[in-house]
Amino acid sequence: MKNFRRLWLDGPYLLWTAAFIVIPLFTIVYYGLTDKTGAFTWDNILAMGTLERMKALILSLVLSLIATAVCLVMAYPLALILTNLKSGATGFIVSIFIIPMWMNSLLRILAWQTLLERNGVINQILQAMHLPKLYIINTPYAIALGMIYDFLPFMILPIYNSLLKLDPNVVNAAYDLGANRFQTFWKVIFPLTLPGVISGITMVFVPALTTFVISAFLGGSKVLLIGNVIEQQFTQVGDWNIGSGLSLVLMVFILISMAVMQHYDKDIAENKTAL
């Protein structure tokens, strides 16, 4: 009777996890390593080697690294300011900067398309002020801008949370022991918030690396990221084997960034216990 009850409770979600999370991962590996007849092959992985695809992959890596770096530089001061707010409406103010995280990213990118167009809002304003126009739509610059805009809240939130958890006594101790602001920041505050920084980096880097919406809206059809290349394999070309092979290559980068995060997190845990 007890076993039956357990089965009833455990069964549905375990079954769901197996059927729609675990088995699909094996399916993508299977498709990626076989050809149409089901025979084993490396060809789908090596398909990444064409000039066009390598260009897309490298561009994706470069743009997502730039976007991550800019997000970090913009988000850290903001998170510091938010932590130091002494207003009764702190909760509200903080949520203003976090809410965009939960708003449809497709639409937010659409908004930037409207802003950046040749005759878009920004160019009309520039024209009215007799300034030179800005033609960055359909270039990698527009895509980088879209990434920064889209993922900035994902960097703010974890850094803000780790700053909140920071023990004020540790910071006070640094000042008492004669450290100046700069030293206190680099030697105490920043290292202690590193787990938040790392998780922010992952939360920006992975979606930026794998996006195809931002490049579809802001890059026209001229600039392709690796996300677009893979998406086209599935929705337009219909070659699931090559599509899966390319996805496996992409997943290597996702796994690397997660491994880095886990590594740093562990180090932090050790440092904390040492303190």
Binding site: F20, I23, P24, T27, I28, T210, S247
Partner: peptide, 10 residues
């Protein structure tokens, strides 16, 4: 994108 593709493939 990977989650989406995985589900599509299954």
């Amino acid at each position: 994108i990977v989650t989406g593709i995985c589900l599509m493939l299954i």
